[in-house]
Simulated scan of single mutants.
Amino acid sequence: MNIYGSTISMLEKGLDYSSTKGKMIAQNIANIDTPNYRAKTVSFNEVLKNAQSEPIHAYRTNERHINFSTKVYQPGVSKLSTLKYRQDGNGVDMDKEQADLAANQIYYNALVDRINSKFNSLQNVIKGGR
């Protein structure tokens, strides 16, 4: 029996995605002056497409059971190889990175607030509503 439900698990995956995206944005900002550096991005859609295209397998006790898998997917990190914003070949746009950083921070804070709310609800149930 899972007392937490799937909500906390999904919020955890969202926090993982946001954390990975934040690291990529910080790495892009840190390499703003590196010649020929290509900006990196985190794409959840890429991971979702890959997950849907892979065959799904699991232990089945009957051939009529549906196949499934418990494989964990991490957000996909990819380079934006076609973008060049400066003469030295650097592909980092500081304005875009700062906007992405702000949006990611808002997303992360919303997830943290939601997970805190979920834990407060569980704590309230455990205390018996007191």
Rank of each mutant, 00 (worst) to 15 (best):
N2F: 03
N2C: 03
I3N: 01
T7W: 00
S9C: 02
L11M: 15
L11N: 00
E12F: 09
E12I: 06
K13Y: 03
L15W: 04
S18I: 05
S19K: 09
S19E: 00
T20R: 12
T20G: 08
T20D: 02
T20K: 14
K21C: 08
G22V: 03
I25K: 00
I25M: 03
I25T: 06
I25W: 02
A26M: 08
N28F: 12
A30V: 07
A30R: 08
N31V: 11
N31F: 04
I32C: 05
D33W: 00
T34V: 09
Y37I: 09
Y37R: 03
A39D: 02
A39C: 07
K40T: 10
V42E: 01
V42F: 07
F44W: 12
N45V: 15
E46G: 08
E46A: 15
L48V: 15
L48N: 08
N50D: 15
A51T: 11
A51Y: 04
Q52K: 15
E54Y: 05
E54T: 13
P55M: 04
P55N: 11
I56W: 02
H57G: 09
H57D: 14
A58D: 10
Y59G: 04
Y59N: 01
T61L: 15
N62G: 05
H65T: 09
F68Y: 09
S69E: 14
T70V: 11
T70D: 13
T70Y: 03
Q74S: 12
Q74M: 10
P75A: 14
G76V: 15
V77A: 00
S78P: 00
K79T: 05
K79I: 07
K79A: 12
L80I: 11
L80Y: 04
R86N: 13
D88K: 12
D88L: 09
G89H: 10
N90L: 09
N90D: 09
V92S: 03
D93T: 06
M94D: 03
K96Q: 05
K96G: 00
K96C: 01
E97N: 01
A102S: 13
A103T: 10
I106Y: 03
N109E: 07
V112D: 01
V112S: 10
V112Y: 12
R114W: 00
I115C: 01
I115S: 02
N116D: 07
N116A: 02
S117C: 07
S117N: 13
K118R: 14
K118I: 06
K118L: 09
K118T: 11
F119A: 01
N120C: 05
N120D: 15
S121Y: 15
S121Q: 12
S121V: 05
Q123E: 02
I126A: 13
I126T: 13
K127T: 06
K127G: 10
